[in-house]
Design a protein around this nucleic acid. Structure first.
Lengths: 160, 160
DNA sequence: TTTAAATACATGCATTTGCATATATTGTCA
DNA sequence: TGACAATATATGCAAATGCATGTATTTAAA
């Protein structure tokens, strides 16, 4: 069993995944797709825009009135630059956000939430949280959600 | 703490998610997005088509020469009907799959893999598996991938 | 057996995304 | 300072996706 492994300084560094890793990978893709699709569908059925809009508004609320640069949104939401640019445009067109020129950087924009945006955020949350519970929370107990979050956190770590 | 809970026949059935559930939800979305994007990028960098194409070919190989109906692919891959229809068209145009009329159902199609499809599947796997290891396997040990797969499996269960 | 409902898939049209490139600044370095 | 790379965002065009609807069977019912 020496194939597909490389051993440097006594630390085994695998090149190919174990069967267990491939299995976890497959389930990660499918479980997220299934749960996300279901939640998006609940939101749509209630007449709300896609989750991405909620995510933008939530980030802007975290920024707490200070506004955010598009590139900050891009980093937080794991979206491509051009998609952020256009998502903001669409939300601006619906008056959910507002764009200003960044005062200290002439290249940049500063995006802030409007009152209508704050209102949408408030109205979406009750539907959103029930969807999360229905499609995810109801399938795991507390110790399981905690462990799941912990394991997924390792995939989000920057190091290694 | 009676808000947001309903209690029927002694079984507590929550309506709103716990904080832990919301946290697991957020990480599920972000971790999958991050890992999937990274794997897709590796595949593209190696000159290969999107993962969805691989998934189709893999399903067809599991069908083992018998071919598959588009609706079977739709169910397995969690894709919308019209997307399956067009994905198959695109793959057909590249001669990776071939469509025949289903012999027993005049409405249906039977999709089967071509030799070029089988070949693409073979050539993609080495790149794909290394990407899985790089972006996922390297961040978890065996007991962790096993536990993760188990927890995600609960989200995929049909019941409840 | 005609007729209606359901199923399997395709397709026209609008929206969204991806890709490459453009535009406008801002830093850097000679 | 002047030229040039780097950064932040926008945008034209092609490809993919969503949505509604169309078409051809098949199943079920009268």
């Amino acid at each position: 069993m020496h194939m597909h492994e490389s051993c440097i300084f006594g630390v085994m560094s695998r090149i190919d995944p174990t069967e267990s890793t491939v299995n976890a990978w497959a389930r990660l893709i499918r479980a997220q797709t299934k749960v996300l699709d279901a939640v998006e569908e609940d939101l749509k059925a209630a007449g709300f825009p896609p989750l991405a809009w909620y995510d933008v508004l939530l980030e802007l609320r975290r920024a707490d009135g200070a506004g955010m640069r598009p590139m900050e949104l891009q980093a937080q939401l794991l979206l491509a630059q051009h998609n952020v640019s256009r998502l903001i445009d669409r939300m601006d067109a619906k008056n959910l956000v507002r764009k200003k020129r960044a005062s200290n950087d002439g290249r940049g924009q500063l995006v802030e939430m409007t009152e209508a945006g704050r209102d949408l955020l408030r109205r979406m949350w009750p539907v959103y949280r029930r969807a999360i519970q229905r499609h995810m929370g109801s399938k795991l107990d507390t110790s399981e959600t905690e462990r799941l979050a912990e394991l997924l956190g390792k995939l989000l770590d920057h190091g290694s």
